[in-house]
Amino acid sequence: MVTIRDWTVQYPDATVAIDRLSLQIEDGERLALIGANGAGKSTLILSLVGILPGSGEVTIEGLTLNKSNITEIRTKAGVIFQNPDDQLFLPTIYDDVAFGPRNLGLDEESVRHRVEDRLELLNIAHLRERSALKLSGGEKRMAAIATVLAMKPDVMLMDEPTAFLDPKSRRCLIKLLQTLPHTMLIATHDLAFAAEVCSRCLILKDGRYFADGPTQKLLYDAEKMDAAGLEAIS
């Protein structure tokens, strides 16, 4: 479960990116985070794992975010970045997936076990020794998800997971996310994707809470979506 209370994120130039946001995501729930460009979606995701500093209270799986438990928080909540290239920086996919478990101090045998298990779960075992430089967008996205799953997180925070994907890869991703049991917060502009994957969505506008409700209702509400600077699914 993720609980956020009065969460505010302010940039060094005094711009308030997230303004007193409160929300709760239940265990196993998939919540879509919707908002126009600059609404604060990516900032919120990075701040929830302590990459960007914020004030207020964030609790992830019973652990309240503070400087002393940042490693535990980042183990419990995995972040999938908008651009998978940002997440894949080692010579082979194996090394990339193993990076997190090695940082956790696991021995090499446990690391190997964990990496191979995750690669097989995502059907990308054949990419094991390949370099990210030579993968397609869909393969890179799956590899990036594997790097996060290898940390065995309870919560997954995703920033535009359908970016850079062709329709087939996007479909594969939808199927995968529907089968994963994790609690998820998914920032996306892809409303059709949000409607298929998430049961609930939250709309941010200028860093503030704007609306919250079932995706099947809210995403089709033309009046509300228009007021948030978005376009409803027709």
Binding site: L46, V49, I51, T71, R74, T75, G78, V79, F81, N83, D86, Q87, F89, F99, G100, R102, N103, L104, G105, D107, E108, T147, V148, M151
Partner: peptide
């Protein structure tokens, strides 16, 4: 800008200065 995003991704996977990463054979 790009390097900063990569650094964020590294931080998200528990990388710290001085953390021993690889066990030796």
């Amino acid at each position: 800008d790009r390097a900063e995003r990569v650094y964020h991704a590294i931080q998200c996977r528990c990388w710290h200065l001085g953390r021993r990463q690889i066990s030796s054979p």
